[in-house]
Amino acid sequence: MDTLIQLNKQTAGRDKLARLCQYLSRFLWYNLQNKQKFLNNNAINNLKSLEYQLSTFRKLLRWGRCLDVVYSTLPILNYPLDSRRFVDVLTKLSQAFYFLTDHILWLGRADLCQVDTHKWNQISNRYWLYTITLNLVKNFIEINNLFKLHSCQSLIYQIFLGTFSRNSFKNDVSWCNAQTLVLIQRHKALIADLIKNLCDLFIPLTTLGYYNLSPGFVGLLGVISSIAGLFILIDSTVKFIP
């Protein structure tokens, strides 16, 4: 209960909780809709309406976030000029544009102005896809750096040089597996962020028509990524900082 109260105190926490309920609603209405014995259309329509209302609520919670993201880009400009800085700046700018399009969509949903919701929803998902892709690039840069420090190069060299025996190969494989487990345990933040980004990746890909996943599967991916996001908020040591 203390954890729930702590999450509810934060805007990000309320957003993640609403997101979890939003995608859980999608998962439930799709599975109920596909059950031939389930004939209660009111329950399905209520879940669809709940999903829509939670989506609108989350857009309102994020109102003004585009300015926050742009402002948070300024300190990055002082970092050393390398590929990581370039990716960080692109990620922030893409995220700012994503939030901006989200604000426009909310104005349309609130009937405050005339908005082509289909057009702006596509633009919003495109910027969301860019942001997720760039986040994944940062994840893989970090993973690559970790494996440079803790790699299994000795095993790879032995395989290609053919200088290993069966027993030494088994020992090296066991050592590599142990090292991988240690890396996962020490870098939970990176793993949680990677899982979240991989699950999120297929949501805009499906909306934009690049993949043809069912609403139920998209809902399941959204639930998993929302749980990962909540896990990051609950445990500050799991927050990924490249």
Rank of each mutant, 00 (worst) to 15 (best):
S49P: 05
L67Q: 10
S49G: 09
L81V: 09
C66W: 08
N8H: 11
V69A: 01
Q36W: 09
N46I: 09
R85Y: 09
T101H: 09
Y71P: 01
S94N: 13
Q36K: 13
L77Y: 01
Q6N: 12
K16L: 05
R85N: 05
N135G: 13
Y30N: 02
I5M: 06
L100D: 01
R65E: 00
W106H: 15
W128P: 02
Y52M: 06
L136E: 14
I104K: 07
Q122P: 03
N121G: 12
N8P: 00
V70G: 02
H103P: 03
L129C: 09
L47I: 10
K92H: 12
N135Q: 13
Y98C: 07
T131H: 06
R84D: 07
Q114R: 08
R26E: 04
R26N: 03
V137Y: 02
R62L: 03
F38N: 09
W106D: 11
D88M: 14
W63P: 04
L7Y: 08
Y71N: 02
K59P: 10
S55C: 15
V89W: 13
D116R: 00
N40G: 11
K35N: 06
S55R: 15
R19A: 09
L50S: 08
V70E: 08
L4R: 14
L107Y: 12
Q53P: 04
C113R: 06
T131Q: 05
Q114M: 05
Y23E: 03
S72C: 13
I132F: 08
L7Q: 09
N40D: 15
K92S: 15
F99E: 04
V89L: 14
L60G: 13
Q6H: 13
L28K: 05
V87S: 06
N41S: 10
I44A: 08
D88Q: 14
Q33M: 09
N31V: 01
D102K: 00
R65A: 00
T91G: 08
Y98G: 03
L74E: 07
T101L: 12
W120S: 13
R85D: 03
S55E: 15
L134F: 05
L112G: 00
K59L: 14
L32S: 12
R109H: 08
V89M: 10
D116G: 00
S25L: 03
D102M: 01
A96E: 06
N45W: 07
T3I: 15
Y52R: 07
G64T: 07
L107D: 10
L100K: 05
T91Y: 12
N31M: 03
S94R: 05
W106G: 11
K9M: 03
D116N: 01
L67D: 08
N40H: 14
A96K: 05
D15R: 06
L100T: 09
Q22I: 01
L107A: 10
N42Y: 06
V137K: 04
Y52I: 02
T3V: 12
D15S: 12
G108M: 02
L90Q: 10
N121R: 08
K48A: 05
N125F: 15
Y127N: 02
R26H: 02
F99A: 07
N125P: 10
N41Q: 13
L61Q: 05
L77E: 00
L17N: 02
F57I: 03
C66I: 04
P80C: 06
F97V: 00
